[in-house]
Design a binder for these strands. Sequence first.
DNA 1: TTAATTACTTTGAATAGTCAAAATATTCTA
DNA 2: TAGAATATTTTGACTATTCAAAGTAATTAA
Lengths: 231, 231
Amino acid sequence: MASRTIENYLKQLWLQQQESRGKYVPMGKLAALVGVTAGTATTMVKAIADSGLAKYAPRAGVRLTRAGEQLALHVLRRHRLLELFLVEILGIDWSDAHGEAEELEHVISETVLARIDLLLGHPSVDPHGDPIPSSSGTVEAPELCSLAELQAGSKTAIVRIMDQSAEFLRFAQTSGLVPKAAVVIEHNNPQAGAISARPDGKPPVILSMAAAAKFLVRPCPTAGKQRRKRS
Amino acid sequence: MASRTIENYLKQLWLQQQESRGKYVPMGKLAALVGVTAGTATTMVKAIADSGLAKYAPRAGVRLTRAGEQLALHVLRRHRLLELFLVEILGIDWSDAHGEAEELEHVISETVLARIDLLLGHPSVDPHGDPIPSSSGTVEAPELCSLAELQAGSKTAIVRIMDQSAEFLRFAQTSGLVPKAAVVIEHNNPQAGAISARPDGKPPVILSMAAAAKFLVRPCPTAGKQRRKRS
DNA sequence: TTAATTACTTTGAATAGTCAAAATATTCTA
DNA sequence: TAGAATATTTTGACTATTCAAAGTAATTAA
């Protein structure tokens, strides 16, 4: 099977492809994500491409093949199920779960994974709201908008958080901006470059647009409303 | 810290030293336990000795230093807590738990281990009855005798099983010879080279002396009884 | 006490993964 | 469009771990 190292490259590649809508991922980007030098990434990617898991275009970048995507999704499934397991069953801190899962995802067996999945009741999202790929290697991520896109006065609920760093998650938790939390937008003036959001039963939180964009919510402003607004 | 590989060498070394009462472990033995060639073991052991975790005497063998023992015990603690966790919490088969734990023991963090320990209620033995070293690196294994040493008619209870192989454990389980099971010795004629033991509520099981020796029990024949028998 | 067997060590080579630095492209800027 | 700046690839080297095979020591047997 694929080594730990290769599993990591594939996973990062998949995640990055989501961001960049399937475009070729540049070497420098991949190298940074995996945490190696660009030269190392080039070497590894050529090996990965040789084994049929990715397509490599010199100086353009890399893209996963179907087989590569499948493998990446299996790693991601392990990762996300483990995160949820660590938080729900073992009571590990939300902000630490990601790091712990990074290690475990490469050594957990199918058998153990199946038990975890069962114990958690075949969950569909991890503690950050990220969808858990199915065991057959499919994911559906619903289209969501972010806190930054909501007008003052809107009521919505956090669904997903697009930042796995322990610091950001700690901030999100103490602010009350966790998945399933109800939130009211108090101020959102585009000129100000920041918004104020009030989680249910908590004091309002000021967020830069960049930070607000990391919180995906539902419901969104309706298409109708948006259209009316634009016209 | 120590690599996975080195952790494995140390663990096997510790286990073997228990068997051989602290004597130097010969290279061939260690190599077989770790699953490498003797040449590889020699190379690794020299490196381990250089880092102060073991004492290496060419052509005589290896022995752990105090530091090496400590490290080995931490690995063993992880291993045994994980085994119990896999069986108790995840419902993994008894006979599979050992193999699964072999992998996990090298990647589990102190934090996760502490949660597992807590969840299990700070247990003192793993599913095979092997004692779990404390977090400060101490183990006490009570002196036990084996099924093979009991006379016909004795009643006792299985405490520990000295074989981790999945096949043997499957056999033990289907026979009802599991830790805590009450057992009556029905026949034990030294000339026959085999005994018959009946677990509570199960049909009797025939065991070779070698197999019977793998089941450690309590209570043992009393010293008094033994003396009387010998005289 | 020599010879044979067995155990152990050494040597040379291989693999996976990595980095630093040099060489090459590409893109951006003026 | 000629540099300059930036990104990528290549090269050479290094670490950790392994094996096979050759060499060496110790033990056993005759």
